[in-house]
Amino acid sequence: MPAKEALSCQDLGYTYPDGTVALRKVDFSIQTGDSVALVGPNGAGKSTFALLTVGVIFPSRGSLRVFGMELSRHTLREIRRHVGLVFQDAEDQLFMPTLLEDVSFGPLNQGLSEDQARQRGLESLAAVGLEELAERFPGHLSGGEKKLASLASILSMQPQIIILDEPTAGLDPRARRKVIEQLAALRLTKIVISHDLEMVLDLCPRTILLDKGSVWADGDTTEILSDKETMDSHGLEVPYSLSPDHRHRFPLAGSRHEAEHKK
């Protein structure tokens, strides 16, 4: 059975009120269950795209469809049932006074009863291993816990598509690894916006390279990220694990490389 189209953009464009063009003529589609990375330099339009997907802002031109529904004020509520956005700064995402209140916020707004919302919240905290911190003040969590809590706050809404804006930014290696493992375990359509290209290699078979509001490359992650010319010309770097001299200097660097060596 062919995969269903989860999200698609046709001729999508967005211009901020001050005249800054963030996105111009973006076209691509993502199938159900895909894990897609959105990479590009600062100011490429990645975060603007993320805001568009949940209708925080609306396209200036073209269209964005989620499961065939075109984003508009009439479809906003329905689209937000399907799409969850994890913001870059967990401090912005976790705005409620306790973790349990935060993860229950979305379900309550979806119209669930208080008991159902509480149950959903507890389940989503358990899914990321934070159930014991349910009554904790979000400001007292560590960076990694905040990221996982942000993820839980979206999982409790049971979205079918999840968009993650820089999910590993500012984390220490252990917390970063934990977040990556949690994301890898999610059986959802994922769009990962990140400068952490090693994580992109771990999580996303497909990559879309965005720069100056346009799509410059769309295809296999390893192919795009190892193309030095393309990466250099868009202010990016070939990840170290894909650089030619890396694997022999660090033979135990990771399972992906070991698998490549076995080929």
């Binding site: 805001l51 949940v54 209708g55 925080v56 509520r77 937000r80 969850g84 956005l85 913001f87 700064d89 912005d92 995402q93 705005f95 916020f105 979305g106 707004n109 979806q110 706050s153 979206i154 809404m157």
Partner: peptide, 13 residues
């Protein structure tokens, strides 16, 4: 502004 965006994305009314 960012908090409002995060709240809106989770159905704040």
């Amino acid at each position: 502004q960012r908090i409002f965006e995060a709240m809106s994305a989770r159905g704040f009314d």
